[in-house]
């Protein structure tokens, strides 16, 4: 069970990579759980996320084949 993880903006620069593959635990995980698994730390404050290009929260489930994205608060316009 793998997912593709994308990082944007300041997160992308701080982590030094725009994306990576992640192996999901049996039974799947959540957006917050996947962050913890990848970074051995709690998600930072004000972290935003998307699953399959739809806005998500830390509780949103993540399943095999999903596209998960983590990013800082948005500042368009």
């Amino acid at each position: 069970m793998t997912v593709r993880v994308h990082y944007f903006a300041r997160l992308r620069e701080e982590l030094g990579r725009p994306n990576e593959e992640a192996e999901l635990p049996a039974g799947g995980t959540t957006v917050g759980g996947l962050w913890q698994q990848l970074h051995q730390d709690a998600p930072p404050e004000r972290l935003m996320a998307a699953v399959n290009q739809e806005q998500a929260s830390l509780d949103t489930p993540v399943s095999d084949g999903d596209e998960v994205a983590y990013f800082p608060p948005v500042t368009g316009g």
Binding site: A9, Q55, F71, P72, V74, G76, G77
Partner: peptide, 11 residues
């Protein structure tokens, strides 16, 4: 809503 919801970031 664009400013608060659409994924754009400024550097």
């Amino acid at each position: 809503r664009l400013k608060h919801e659409a994924p754009f970031w400024k550097r």
